[in-house]
Design a protein around this nucleic acid. Structure first.
Ligand SMILES: [Zn+2]
Ligand SMILES: [Zn+2]
Ligand SMILES: [Zn+2]
Ligand SMILES: [Zn+2]
Lengths: 198, 198
DNA sequence: AGCGTGATGTTATAATATATCAATATGAAA
DNA sequence: TTTCATATTGATATATTATAACATCACGCT
């Protein structure tokens, strides 16, 4: 029943030199917000430091996520990508996502089979070394579908403690917390944003 | 109705008219362990208390999970189910799973798109009321693929605290912790059990 | 220019999950 | 018992999510 996801404003303000094909005569309708541009540039320079390439495609996918208020599914991204990028197919998107996930520039929300850009690209003290996989937790609002990324030490410690109690060595944790965000609580709106139950 | 045990695996004790094909003369090969039978009976009586029905199909699916050392995917269950239940199709399994999840008799491991029986069916002080949705956390071993269900208050409190800090009202949390279990740590084996990376 | 590597294009298919409607079973009411 | 409403299952089709496999292309290096 996936439908009616918001259209995202497009991505097309990349550096001209970066653009892959000459097929792109789309009249540059939709610009990215200043914030998005800044974050993309930040992500780009992180990639340079790490000796990996933030290609036009990857930047475009990252841009789509940054411009969205909520998590996007792979095929949402594909659809939006196709508007500008005729040949795009599922692997196009999944590869870009794999790269972004691998480098900690995006995260997958398992419960939603959806993806969000990492909010810590900005403040990355994480820069230099390869701690792309930081410990994160997500707050998922069932009403407005917005997702908030946390990096809460208390949760991490509690998990470490409980795991140690079972003799378990933690490598990665998926923490996805569903409920109602502060805004939706305040406004009393309660229509669920078509999230899976429970 | 006949005792729950009668229905347990004797799917062929169904009205003849119901049976799709005559091919089904499977001679009752596989018995369930005593532990599984006990847990099934426990689950059954929980259902009675709640006024819902632990049908033969549901019991069979639950039994398959209980007999497995690791999480099973829906189509794993389907395949095993089909050995006894000729007409089984994807909805057959997903419906049974929906029921079991709804009543807290099983859990879905999102990271693995797989399902495990709830270990707390036994000690359910949870009996009477409808707290089917207890707060759980899962330890997933990347080497042996076994999953351990926890109910750790420390984790729950840490999550409540962090969420409150964001003005967020928690309804449900998905906590899936990947790493190495005590046994695999001890034995030093490290071949991954084909789990997803990171 | 020639080469090696990583990135993308392209097609096909696997794996996971749900929609829909028909048939049947179940338990309670009449 | 018969009747009825509802829950469950059967059966088919399809939606959604994700990957395999191989060809081609772009980039950096010599
Ligand atoms: Zn992050
Ligand atoms: Zn909200
Ligand atoms: Zn449980
Ligand atoms: Zn293990």
């Amino acid at each position: 029943m996936g439908s009616a996801r918001d259209m995202a404003y497009d991505i097309h303000a990349m550096p001209t030199a970066t653009r892959p094909t000459p097929e792109a005569f789309v009249p540059e309708g939709d610009r990215l917000s200043a914030r998005t541009e800044a974050l993309l540039d930040r992500a780009d320079s992180l990639c340079v430091k790490r000796g990996v390439r933030m290609t036009a495609l990857r930047r475009q996918v990252m841009g789509l996520m940054l411009e969205s208020s909520h998590p996007l599914r792979a095929y949402d991204l594909l659809e939006q990508l196709q508007a500008r990028h005729a040949g795009a197919a599922p692997p196009t998107v999944y590869r870009a996502l794999d790269f972004l996930l691998e480098h900690g520039l995006a995260h997958k929300i398992e419960r939603l089979s959806s993806f969000v850009p990492c909010v810590h690209v900005l403040d990355h003290s994480h820069d230099h070394d390869g701690d792309c996989a930081h410990a994160t937790q997500f707050l998922i609002c069932r009403t407005c579908a917005r997702v908030t990324e946390l990096e809460d030490g208390g949760i991490v410690r509690a998990i470490a403690l409980a795991s140690r109690g079972s003799g378990f060595h933690v490598q990665h944790s998926t923490i996805e917390i569903e409920g109602l965000c502060a805004e939706c609580l305040a406004s009393g709106t309660n229509e669920s944003a078509s999230l899976p139950p429970q």
